[in-house]
Design a binder for these strands. Structure first.
Lengths: 233, 233
DNA sequence: AGGACTATTGACAACGTGTCAATAGCTGGC
DNA sequence: GCCAGCTATTGACACGTTGTCAATAGTCCT
């Protein structure tokens, strides 16, 4: 993997004071001259685990899974590679844990969903979504349906994370009361969520559409889903 | 990887008479008793390449990329692993070639798109899409945006394949004449394509919605995009 | 200070990939 | 029919990655 610094846009959920990558990795990485023996230091398991996690998060956000080796992560954390397996079992598991956090973006808060007509509430909900998208950075956009139906673990994680946002959206559309076709309504909103994600991609990644244009598309399609598709269950 | 037979639903584009996996692989796979020395046979390059390709296609359709090793493919084709690199350079390249074929599904024919109101044409277009989806199997659904923005090669292949369908859809919606915001219109249909794909997933993979329900959702959203979002460019 | 607990290491085995010189199947000329 | 040349095909090699595990060495407690 090519070592690069990157801006590290979206580090979500940072319980402990974010232990810096440790002067260890720096010393090793910068040059070979600096051999003051680097007394290895012994942290308590939670801190060390968290530190490794943060480094992995950064790397996985900047590079695709297979381009990040356990060695890279260990080097970034200034730690022996074996320690990764000790704390996370295997690389894939660590990755899944990173995903689990990264994909919890947006479920955090929609504060108060205001009164008003359906159109107004949809408008606000879309605004809120685009805001949170802009803040959370682009890595979340790259996530998703690539391995759907193939990778059960990843799928359940992603589904679980998306469910929160979806419940929220359903409520915002005034459909919280509906109980009969509940699962089917959820499915429809899940489909819509992909539309929203895809819209975000065009806006933030490919830059082919402006925010107002994406907003218009998302708002009008959501409205028509609520008005036409949902009643058809 | 787990060796399993599978039905091999969608083998598209089969130029040569589909050389069977060769009794070689069978002999090796079935039991160790059958050692009549297996004279290796020398095919002309096109045939051999095609044969390897077919085996790879089958394996990649049934298992995710990283679970299929070059050894698996070579074994399936009854051939030395080195030959794969000789013909395709590397594993990734072979994979991309498989994808390039698999993703050309649906661009084949929409025959005649009939006259009629916008609603009618949209209805037919959605029907056509769902038909082709049902036929092409589920592997196409699993493809897609997972590595978007990360994997340029895969992205361009997928985009290229999707572009055909999108041009078709634009025409079906009577937007072929529009020239000014062309690229933005394309972007909107690209977003819609993700919605359609996602709808297909709910219908065929997760089985949470029925075909009529997905149809209604796709038709109404497409209509509203054409009527509301597109005029806003 | 010294002993016990355990976080951390480093070497090992297994596996996967790409390269390349050596091998052996086929084909055409005699 | 047979032999020589062409090249499709092989198998071993070098290197990188992953997961395991016994050995090592910080740190805390008495």
């Amino acid at each position: 993997m090519a070592a690069l610094a990157g801006s590290g846009a979206n580090t979500v959920n940072e319980p402990s004071p974010a232990p810096q990558p440790t002067e260890a990795s720096a010393a090793k990485a910068v040059s070979g001259v600096d051999l003051h023996q680097m007394r290895r230091q012994r942290l308590n398991p939670d801190e060390r685990r968290q530190q490794i996690f943060v480094c992995a998060q950064k790397l996985f956000n900047e590079n695709p899974y297979e381009d990040v080796s356990a060695t890279d992560i260990a080097a970034a954390a200034g730690v022996a590679r074996g320690l990764i397996n000790h704390y996370f079992g295997n690389k894939r598991n660590l990755y899944l844990e990173v995903i689990r956090i990264s994909s919890t973006v947006s479920a955090v808060a929609v504060a108060r969903l205001p009164e008003g007509s359906l159109e107004e509430r949809i408008d606000l909900a879309v605004d809120w979504f685009l805001d949170s998208l802009e803040k959370s950075g682009t890595s979340w956009l790259a996530l998703g349906s690539g391995s759907m139906g193939r990778d059960p673990d990843l799928e359940t994680i992603l589904i679980a994370a998306e469910n929160d946002s979806i419940e929220l959206l359903i409520e915002a559309c005034g459909l919280a009361g509906r109980t009969e076709g509940r699962e089917q309504i959820r499915a429809m909103f899940r489909i819509y969520a992909q539309l929203a994600r895809s819209g975000g991609r065009e806006w933030l990644l490919r830059k082919t559409l402006t925010r107002p244009q994406v907003h218009a598309l998302l708002a009008s399609t959501l409205a028509v889903i609520v008005e036409k598709a949902v009643p058809a269950v």
